[in-house]
Design a protein around this nucleic acid. Structure first.
Lengths: 340, 340
DNA sequence: ACTCAGGACGGGAGCGCTCCCAGTTCGCGG
DNA sequence: CCGCGAACTGGGAGCGCTCCCGTCCTGAGT
């Protein structure tokens, strides 16, 4: 299956053509020091003339590295997270890798078969490290990768777990400061629309909401909670439900900007003005937050930093050989706009 | 950068452990015939005991193939196409590959640098073939891949181009039959919401719309067209615009189900009943079409078949070495539900 | 008992690169 | 003009596998 381009020139042929040794050609294509300028140019001309492209399989075999890392997504997330979050993360990871010469490969793992196949691929040495998108609690993949001693970094913690490297945003703090902001504005009937509560991030945001109320001495109050799945549609439904349950509601923290956008629609439909009657806060601060009407106050997730941190941790592990687990929790920040 | 797990067992070690030759172990892990059952079992036990995993770099080097294909997306599409179309395609490609032992790798190409890097990766032999998502007209990637003699299959044609293999749906026919359906229902003021018209698929759907009107002898009529970018939001806007321009509108063909969903909202907001006042037809038949209110009549794209066809063409090219261009145009089908 | 076809099996010869050491050349002070 | 580090350069020794050919063993046929 799949004969490769036959007769592709080899490094050896380039060496002959340039009248130098293999070692020298190798040094040139790897930009290594210690080659006279004139020699280097000669080799480069030979490469040009022959249309030489290094064979990556041979390079991997000899060099014992793949110069590639995988970003693995499991089915559930990449559907619901799909839109902005996913694409933003991929972009920021791509940016963080641009000048490392490392290829970013996305892989979908939707079934046990595919998980197994990916594992063989990874253990077979086709990637030097693995990035995992929001892994669900029961997924055995992180452990399997650890067993294979493959450098691995998770995006987002799973509950409490420490024996794995991860990068996460301070969801608790973000939610807390959002709710505090509402309280400072004099709002008193504050509800929250959560994400799917089997996701640790969603649990954290809920916790932050509760903590802020507690800090304000409102512990006695009932917590007003509706669950969503991060989509606009579910946000609309959840908001409608909250309006019904708490007619005097005057503030809402949504699970994401998308959810908040849905909530805004529901509020409009119910004739409530934002922010006069009800203040709304989103989460994420993707571009959507600036296109809503009114523009959304939201908790900014530092996507760019998350991507950079993930790559940094992964590279460190690749360097040192996965001897320690690293955790980075990035600060979130409230961005105040017109909806509060 | 990135030392690989040191001391991973090699095929040689397995051979020693099982007291057989390297050849035999190779035959076992490749499921090749000509190994006595008892021997095979012994080897498998040795593999088990040593936790042996084949080194894919060595296998690629010796076997001259990568057992992987890349699915390349360029920035523009994977944002706007994003949601259902993209995920459905990936799913169907994944399914079509499951029992070939070939890994599907997604790659994002967002800049010239990344295009170049991917090309090196592909020409370096890390993949045996390339699948391209809806490539835009000016993209040089297909030609570069052809030059490198890498088997390549496009999803969706670019205008008229023939010197490349592709799989596409019959967009013209689909749009035509949708509009004919509306005409048969006695609708006379029929508009269309197109996709971005720099996309050939969108042009084709528009052409189908025009052809159906022409076939019905309505050529004199003005064509009623508004452009969208496939999102629900743009569908809503386009629909609102059409209502204003053609108050007596009684039928609409939308660019996609998502667009149609937006159009439904705009119609509801304008107090038009569907299908009594205005009939709406979508395009794609993704699951969304069954969740709208009313459920959407739509032109079904055979995603499953598209995925299978792409893989089939690619495997054929990989087998024969990219000597011919193959084209497959798949029939679309009108699925009538409640919105007409 | 002897022959011989055919199924099993072993292992040499690479695949194309990197690593690294030994050899060669160069530049410069004495 | 010689001596000596330092800067270059060449090429052997693998990396771990597949391919393939030659050998060995088995058992049926006579």
């Amino acid at each position: 299956m799949g004969k490769r381009r036959p007769g592709a020139p080899t490094l050896e042929e380039v060496a002959v053509h340039a009248r130098v040794g293999r070692g020298t050609v190798s040094r040139v294509i790897n930009n290594a020091a210690g080659v006279k300028d004139s020699t280097r140019r000669a080799v480069q001309r030979a490469i040009e003339e022959l249309g030489y492209v290094p064979n990556l399989a041979a390079r991997s075999l000899a060099g014992r590295r793949a110069d590639a890392v995988a970003l693995v997504m499991t089915e559930p997330d990449w559907r619901q997270f799909a839109e902005p979050f996913f694409s933003e993360i991929v972009r920021s990871l791509g940016d963080a890798l641009t000048d490392t010469g490392i290829q970013l490969l996305l892989t979908l793992v939707r079934s046990d078969t595919e998980r197994q196949r990916f594992l063989e691929y990874a253990r077979g040495g086709r990637v030097d490290g693995v990035l995992l998108m929001s892994v669900h609690a029961g997924d055995p993949l992180p452990d399997m990768l650890a067993e294979a001693r493959l450098p691995t970094v998770l995006l987002g913690r799973r509950s409490g777990e420490e024996y794995v490297s991860y990068v996460d945003a301070d969801n608790i703090g973000g939610a807390r400061s959002a709710v505090s902001h509402l309280l400072r504005q004099g709002r008193r009937v504050i509800a929250t629309i959560t994400g799917p509560l089997d996701l640790y991030a969603a649990q954290c945001r809920l916790r932050g909401y509760e903590e802020a109320l507690a800090m304000a001495g409102l512990e006695g109050e009932p917590t007003r909670v509706a669950e969503s799945d991060f989509t606009a549609e579910s946000g609309r439904r959840a908001m409608a439900e909250l309006i019904e349950r708490y007619p005097d509601i005057d503030g809402v923290l949504a699970a994401s900007d998308t959810t908040a956008a849905g909530a805004l629609e529901a509020l409009r439909a119910a004739g409530r003005r934002v922010p006069e009657d009800v203040a709304v806060i989103g989460f994420d601060d993707f571009s959507l937050a600036q296109r809503t009407e009114p523009r959304l106050t939201t908790v900014r997730q530092p996507i760019e930093e998350i991507g950079r941190a993930m790559i940094r941790l992964l590279l460190e592990e690749m360097e040192e050989g996965a001897v320690a687990w690293r955790h980075v929790i990035l600060r979130t920040e409230l961005v105040v706009r017109e909806s509060t």
